[in-house]
Amino acid sequence: MSRIIFITGASKGFGKLWAEAFLKRGDKVAATARNITALNELAATYGDKVLPLQLDVNNRAEVFRVVNKIEKHFGRIDVLINNAGHGLFGITEEVSEAQAREQMETNFFGSLWVTQAVLPIFRKQKSGHLVQVSSFLGITTLPLLGIYNASKFAVEGLIETIGLETAHLGIKTTLIEPNGYSTDWAGTSATRTDGGIEDYTPVREAFAEVGKNPNIWGKPEATVTPVLQVVDSPNPPQRLLLGNIAYDTVHKVYNQRLKEIESWKDVSIAAQGF
């Protein structure tokens, strides 16, 4: 039986690739984007298998209206893929209030609003799979991405908590944690600060030099099969790293953190007071 997949941010990048993969194999997809005309190609190719809808995930009332339309149209939602989001590049000290709030509004609150709107449907069904696109930068950090890192750290805590709250209801959660990929995420979709503080020039230059290495950018098409495997699994992982850089980096970071935790073990235990 085909499943009903709801994907936000489906106009390009991962969202579009994954939407097409689900549609090609016979699933039905509710695809949303801020600009609905960006979904015309999907609609023209897949007809009534796809439900294109305009959605700004920052607008909580609009999110609930759109989710209601999806449920009425398809009768259920089997998988939610929270994919809408964007990057904010710049030294943290240079980020404006408006830029910081916009980053958190979309990446964190947008995911929260969509999840809150879909969870009642999952609870009623006693089934559902919440797949949240996070980042390996929700576990570790890179310079010039301070607010983006923070938004993904927040998303990690949110989805892990929801997993604990809903597991007894038959609801599954998975955090997808990619490294950098050759999508538009770091291109025109991204926001950037002015970069005016000279003291940070060495940090900016080092970051730019690393970005010139083509081997750090994964091939977006290579993510399709792993995502299908996660959605199809009867026991999906709580977290799935995408890309060798994500795997190697997170493996190293966790080992370093455990070593530091152990080196301060006596101090930590003494802090309990008894």
Rank of each mutant, 00 (worst) to 15 (best):
Y181W: 05
Y181H: 11
S182W: 01
T183H: 04
T183G: 04
D184I: 02
D184W: 02
A186P: 02
A186G: 01
G187S: 09
G187H: 03
G187N: 12
T191L: 14
T191N: 09
R192W: 05
R192T: 11
R192A: 14
T193N: 05
D194M: 05
D194Q: 11
D194G: 00
G195Q: 07
G195I: 05
G196P: 00
D199G: 01
Y200F: 13
T201M: 03
P202I: 03
P202R: 06
V203C: 02
E205Q: 15
E205I: 04
A206T: 02
A206C: 00
A208H: 03
A208L: 13
A208K: 13
A208S: 11
E209R: 11
V210F: 09
V210P: 00
G211Q: 13
G211W: 04
G211A: 10
K212Q: 15
K212L: 10
K212H: 03
N213G: 01
N213V: 06
P214W: 08
N215D: 15
I216D: 07
I216T: 08
I216E: 07
W217L: 12
W217T: 07
W217S: 07
G218R: 03
K219P: 00
K219C: 01
P220N: 11
P220T: 10
E221D: 13
A222P: 00
T223L: 15
T223R: 04
V224Q: 06
V224I: 15
T225D: 13
T225A: 15
P226S: 08
V227D: 01
V227I: 15
L228Q: 05
L228M: 11
L228I: 10
Q229M: 10
V230I: 15
V231D: 01
D232Q: 10
D232M: 03
S233A: 12
S233K: 07
P234K: 12
N235I: 02
N235G: 00
P236G: 07
P236M: 08
P236N: 10
P237D: 02
P237E: 03
Q238C: 01
R239Y: 02
R239C: 04
L240E: 02
L242V: 02
L242K: 07
G243R: 06
G243T: 06
A246I: 04
Y247S: 04
D248C: 00
V250E: 10
V250D: 11
H251M: 09
H251Y: 09
H251A: 14
K252R: 14
K252L: 07
V253P: 00
V253L: 03
V253H: 13
Y254C: 05
Y254E: 12
N255A: 15
Q256M: 11
Q256N: 14
L258F: 15
L258V: 13
K259Y: 05
K259V: 02
E260Q: 13
E262Y: 12
E262A: 14
S263V: 01
S263M: 07
